[in-house]
Design a protein around this nucleic acid. Sequence first.
DNA 1: ACACTTGTGTCCAATTCTTAGACACTTCGG
DNA 2: CCGAAGTGTCTAAGAATTGGACACAAGTGT
Lengths: 173, 173
Amino acid sequence: MNYGTLLVIDDNPAILTAVKICLGGTFERVLTLNSPDKALATIAQEHPSVVLLDMNFSLGVNSGQEGMMWLTAIHRRFPDIPIVLITAYADVKLAVRALKNGAADFVTKPWDNDELIRVLKDAIDKAGEVIPLEQLESEHVRKVLNKCDGNMKRAADLLGISRQTLYNKLKTP
Amino acid sequence: MNYGTLLVIDDNPAILTAVKICLGGTFERVLTLNSPDKALATIAQEHPSVVLLDMNFSLGVNSGQEGMMWLTAIHRRFPDIPIVLITAYADVKLAVRALKNGAADFVTKPWDNDELIRVLKDAIDKAGEVIPLEQLESEHVRKVLNKCDGNMKRAADLLGISRQTLYNKLKTP
DNA sequence: ACACTTGTGTCCAATTCTTAGACACTTCGG
DNA sequence: CCGAAGTGTCTAAGAATTGGACACAAGTGT
């Protein structure tokens, strides 16, 4: 039941209060910002488990550029905190670009409460998963070796390890 | 100028010929399938550098379920080959789900030729990048350590390495 | 104030991993 | 047929990893 702290960033006060009411029961705390200006400072201080970020702040501008900028800024600074984007202007191109820029998910207004809760929980759960170093390594090794059509010498070279080491890593899976 | 082989999978013959004409100059070869049934076999045999996959095959069904299934099937079997999805029914939810399921990109019909070419090239370039093992490792270590609020013991535990090893890895960045 | 727990920074010696180099062998293309 | 490139294997040296240990700091509960 304890999903930690949610940080919501939206310039519409009505949205902020609505989110607070809808998600107050799910999250331990719901923090709100009506401008992304202090997002980095707030995140650094409060360590939210997830950020819900609106894409449009400049009045009349709905390209989502500003939200995208903040997404990249926050994600670069806090790669381990999942960021869910929300926008009124459903745009496939924008959604694709957001996900490629590190967004955990992308939802459109008006939102469905249950779906939003599920999306946020999923983002938190996924961010909470920790892959052991060895597994990460062996998966990557396999992928690179695949791309090299099984050429061990080139794969080892690309991976930055010696051919024998790659050999050993494949021996003990 | 040589971007290898493109595999296009679409049940509309007109689309296939159109793509062939549009992208024939960019790719060394353009293979086509009017059904995903033989996708896995074809990919295994031809080793395309990218796959362009339509989402809707069953007539009258436009939920994209079938394309999604083939996306996951192909991606699970060939994680190193990028898959670009294409659909006539622009749907943000569908696009998000596709990207989360491993799609390299998502474009909508009717498409812009230059954009499609750019997207495919990007997908190939990105898939061609190989991250050295050490860099992958250090990035992951940093992320996990961050998530543990700097608690080295827990981080080392989650990573599956000893505390001293984590210590050393941080010493020499 | 007191013990207790947890984590840090640091060392050690034993073990394991990684490396460069070498060798015979196969495969492939000119 | 030759040479280039890759494989499978080995060795010996060097580097990394491990469990264990120790003193110390910070936070816990009593």
